[in-house]
Structures are given as structure tokens and as C-alpha cells.
Design a protein around this nucleic acid. Structure first.
Lengths: 190, 190
DNA sequence: CCTGTGATGACACCTGGTGCCATCACTGTA
DNA sequence: TACAGTGATGGCACCAGGTGTCATCACAGG
């Protein structure tokens, strides 16, 4: 637990997101972020592996929730049902109070190729974790990877809809909707 | 066209791949690569946007082949048939003479997170291009994204099998095989 | 009051990456 | 043959991201 002014990590995230939103990702130096947060450059890199990582602070928790959600699905569930359960399990990470910052971060990331890369890596780790958990449940491999990929697509689509300013529904709701649309589309591919 | 010693770009790629294979990606500086190639650091960054990019030199051509392959598929083809045609269309990029270097690069990339990121970005651009081309063919959107994602999965799986030292078959063959396995798995998801 | 521990500060240093200008090899033209 | 133009390279200064190392500070516990 931190002494001095507490919440160093959160202060860094806030300072970074605000600075990026104001002036763009690469017109903001790490030194400027830490100055705004009342800390030093060295401390920033103790909390985050690199400059990008400050924007993906909550993502790892999400991956864990997702994998746990799949593991906790009833034993007889089909792959898609397990994925739906996982989408529901991540619900707590998407409180209405987080939409504002999520929207800001989403915009910053969309505007910068380096950040899109990092986002894709997180997404890939998420689907890899899903696929692994599905395999542990006994789903053989082409199906496990495929279900994970569809789950990732549902997650991304659901997140985009949830963040939309016109949206009023919860994340779980829009994400499960996206998933069922994808399942329907499955029949029209052949 | 280059003067002086020609093929500066190819020399840089060779020098980089060999150095990375010998000593690992981040124990090799750009200065060392350019020295080995008989050039300077400044010239390296004229040919490649950053240090990673030297390992993904051919990737953009591949994306183009893929998209063109889909566009060139017969008008009545289903999404999956179009994807299969695209996989076939990339065949020329996978000559037997390229397997050796492809295998080396694959290993270097697998060992380094930064490079995995870049690889994922290329992969994402490839599937995005596929999805876009499918939409232009009149496939509506959940299906277009889904088919593109499955195509990407088939591509990745096929590439892994093609590169395998024990493999003797062509890329198109193993990739189409991976695709049909994925289509079969589709039925078992519900 | 003392000592240990964990987080932070301070500083030097390396490397990826860029801007800027000079230089060289070659081409086309007079 | 001479000369100007073009395109690729070299050289150099410079910035910012990222790391290693040690000092320092606040607190806990004895």
C-alpha cells in the first residue's frame, strides 16, 4: 500500500488520460504526465511497463473475469452458452460510472496506431485465455478456438455499443445480443 | 531503384534476421544491423518505419493478395467459398524457398512480445481488409466480420502447418484444409 | 528509540527514432 | 565533354522512452 499521497497509480492514470485527451498521445511526454500527478518519471515506469500500458490498466482484470466466467459455466453448457456466461460475468467491470473514461480512452486508442497494437495484444490474450479454458472443459480444438474468436467479436461489438452515447442498456445485455447475432450469422456462411 | 550497392532493403532484412536469430531481438541494436549490412542507422529508418517492421516486410503484399483473391471469387460464391479462393490466391507468396526464413522469423516473433503485437496488427489489418471486401460483395455485416475472422484463423493455422518442418504440402492445401475443419466445427457450437 | 521494509526521488545512461543538411552516383541534356 | 538535376545515402545533433543504481523518506514493529 502506498504512503505519502496515496493512490499514485490512479493519479497517474487520470493525469495521463486527461493529458492525452487534451493534446494527443504523442504530444504528451511521460515527464509531463508525472509532473501533473506530482510524481517522477521513474515512478511512472514502476507502475506501468511502458507509456501505452497506462491506458490498459483494467484490461488484465477483465481477462481474468472472462476466463473465470467460462470456467464457472454449468457443466453441460455448449461453447456458446459458456461464452455467454462469461460475457455476463464481466458485467461488474462496466459500471455506468466508467463509461465516460472508457469512451475517452477508446477515442485516444482509435487515433493512434501504437495504441491499437497494444489493444489488439490485450484482445488476443483474452481470446487465448478463453480458448484455453474451453479446452479444459473438454471442447476439442477447432471448436474451442472458433468459439473464443466469436466470443472476442461479441465482446468488441458489445463494448462499442455499450460505449455509444445513445446507448442506455448494460454491457451484458448488448454483448449477449451481439453474440446471438453472430450465432445466427453462422448459418449463412456455407 | 537504388544505386551504389543495390538491394539495400534486402540486405537490411537479411542482416536483421540473421542477427536476431543469433542473439535475440533486443540484444541487437539497429546500429549493429546497419553495420552488418554496410549502411547507416539513418538509412535503416528510411526503409523501415521502425525496428520491428524489418521483420514484416512482405506482409503488406500478402494483405493485398488476400483482398484481391476475395474480390476475384465468382459472383455467386458463399462467404466461405470466397475466403477459400483468397487462401488459394496467396499461394505464390509461399514458395518452398521461403520456408526457411519464414520459420526463423516466426521463432523470433514468438519470443518477443513487442513483435507479437506487430504481428497481431498485421493480422487485424488483413481480416479488416477481408471483411471490407466481403461487404463490397454484398455480404451483410455480422456475417462478413465472422467470415473474415474465420478466414484469419484458417490463415494462421495454415501458416503454422506449412512452416512445420515435417510438412511437405503447399500452403494453399493446408490452409484450405484448416478452413474446412473450422466450417465443420461451426456446427458444434450451439 | 532503533531498525527494517517498501515506495519514491535523483541521476546517469542507452537506444529507438527524427530533422536537417551535405555528399555522392548516376541520368539527361546541351 | 561539361553541367545541372535527382534520388539515395552519410553524418550529426537532438528528443523521448525506458532502465540500472543508489540515496532518501515514511511508516511498522520491537
Amino acid at each position: 500500500m502506498s504512503r505519502w499521497e496515496p493512490n499514485a497509480r490512479e493519479r497517474l492514470v487520470r493525469a495521463a488520460v486527461e493529458s492525452f485527451a487534451e493534446r494527443g498521445y504523442d504530444d504528451v511526454t511521460v515527464a509531463e504526465i508525472t509532473e501533473r500527478a506530482g510524481l517522477t518519471k521513474r515512478t511512472f515506469f514502476r507502475h506501468f511497463a511502458d507509456k501505452r500500458e497506462v491506458l490498459f490498466a483494467g484490461q488484465d482484470i477483465l481477462s481474468r473475469l472472462f476466463a473465470e466466467g467460462i470456467a464457472a459455466a454449468p457443466a453441460g453448457a455448449t461453447p456458446i452458452e459458456a461464452v455467454a456466461a462469461a460475457l455476463t460475468a464481466t458485467e461488474p467491470a462496466f459500471g455506468p460510472d466508467r463509461r465516460e473514461q472508457a469512451r475517452t480512452i477508446r477515442q485516444v486508442v482509435a487515433d493512434h496506431s501504437d495504441l491499437r497494437e497494444r489493444s489488439l495484444l490485450k484482445h488476443a490474450k483474452l481470446t487465448a485465455a478463453m480458448a484455453e479454458t474451453l479446452r479444459e472443459r473438454g471442447i476439442p480444438d477447432p471448436a474451442a478456438s472458433l468459439a473464443a474468436e466469436i466470443g472476442g467479436l461479441a465482446f468488441t461489438t458489445g463494448f462499442a455499443r455499450w460505449v455509444d452515447p445513445a446507448n442506455e442498456r448494460s454491457f451484458g445485455e448488448v454483448a449477449r445480443e451481439a453474440l446471438s447475432e453472430l450465432v445466427e450469422a453462422t448459418a449463412k456462411l456455407g
